[in-house]
Design a protein around this nucleic acid. Sequence first.
DNA 1: TTTATCAGCAACCATATGATTGCATATAGT
DNA 2: ACTATATGCAATCATATGGTTGCTGATAAA
Lengths: 115, 115
Amino acid sequence: MPRRHNNHGEGRSTESAPLFAALGDRTRLRIVARLCSGGPMSITHLTSGSRVTRQAISKHLRVLEAAGVVRAKRRGRESLWQLERRRLQEARRYLDVISGQWDEALARLRKFVED
Amino acid sequence: MPRRHNNHGEGRSTESAPLFAALGDRTRLRIVARLCSGGPMSITHLTSGSRVTRQAISKHLRVLEAAGVVRAKRRGRESLWQLERRRLQEARRYLDVISGQWDEALARLRKFVED
DNA sequence: TTTATCAGCAACCATATGATTGCATATAGT
DNA sequence: ACTATATGCAATCATATGGTTGCTGATAAA
């Protein structure tokens, strides 16, 4: 039996979990927010204005990187971290489905493909 | 200074974290998926076809409930759990912003308000 | 009124997680 | 070369988390 287009059963459904888990922490979400509005920046810059240590920020960035949310470009002695928006859009699409906005998501996808 | 409409700084940004955290677990995401496609169901029904115990499912449902993702209606001796799609849509809107789909999100919001 | 079913509570356990401190390494600037 | 800056690695620690087992209470069905 062929797969339905709206199949969100056991198979694929849970592979978004690590992505959501990566966003499920206050400190990490703050990092994401800063990278979103402030563009690429270094660890030390992210640390300034944060309550936690540079190491903490560093480890969180690794978690976000593992989830595909951020990406680093080494530049000299510092590495600039930036958002990986494509991955975030996947999470958004998943939420489209389970939040009951499936048809609007389809429309958006269609428009996206036709461009 | 008045707040900008696109302010997603420290203040509001991190309050979505518990919501994402709730979705950041395989078992819970499986629960959400089943509730999404199968409609309201009891704990024991959710447990059938799952590897984990009924207590595990029960605890996960409490987590999801605390995050506002699910809601229970007591009916006799069993309680039927269902999705709280509105809450999921908030998470989606947040992802709209940080995934760089802000303008499309605006359009959707506008349409939502005008209805 | 028994009996079976559905759920809640509590204790417990292993592991994951967020955060820290201390030291090491690499590059930029002087 | 020397110094300051930016990052990486490792050990450590307290707590959170996911999961289990065992028992208790409530309601439907016989």
